[in-house]
Amino acid sequence: MSSPSTKDAETIFQALDQLDHLLSATDETPQKVGFNELFSYAHNPKHVPSPALNNALMNDLSVRRDLKRLLSKQALAHLPRAAAASTGDIVEREADGFRLTLKVSKADETQIYLLIEAIDRSESPSLVFVQEEDGPIYRLVIDDFYDGEAQILLQSDNEVLKALRKAKSEVILR
């Protein structure tokens, strides 16, 4: 059995070791994401996110919060979570003058058409952001919004698609 003084020393050593570990920079340390990059990610369809940004968006609550604040100020349209009465997968959302519809391809059931349609709006969104409840924010580039509509074919295991199908996800068009 250890004496009290030995036990205290061991605890203090472990605490200091953890402190050193936290203070020392290693390859595994998350790199800080600059505001510029976050802004580009939120606004520029051609922006390719760095691994650090992707990592931060998956794991860093404050970065997600910053992105959401950015998007909420600059959104073309906000399609909130589906009504509480909704059950099962969501296949259509409509709000703020835009409609998003999911249609299964008859050629391949594992592929889904995402139809984005401006119902009574003239703006052309170039990005779709989907935020799962308390989860990550996914981003999809719309590179062919034309004449008030776009159509994007997605694999059914696509993360954006999976999030779109969840009633509690919110969608922002930019």
Partner: peptide, 27 residues
């Protein structure tokens, strides 16, 4: 390789080799 009748709400599309990649001439 294949032609499939799609839902009338969907725009016609040409895809590459059965994948979800639509070709630029789809419109």
């Amino acid at each position: 390789q294949r032609i499939t009748k799609e839902d009338p709400d969907v725009r016609s599309v040409i895809c590459l080799d059965g994948t979800a990649k639509a070709l630029p001439i789809a419109r």
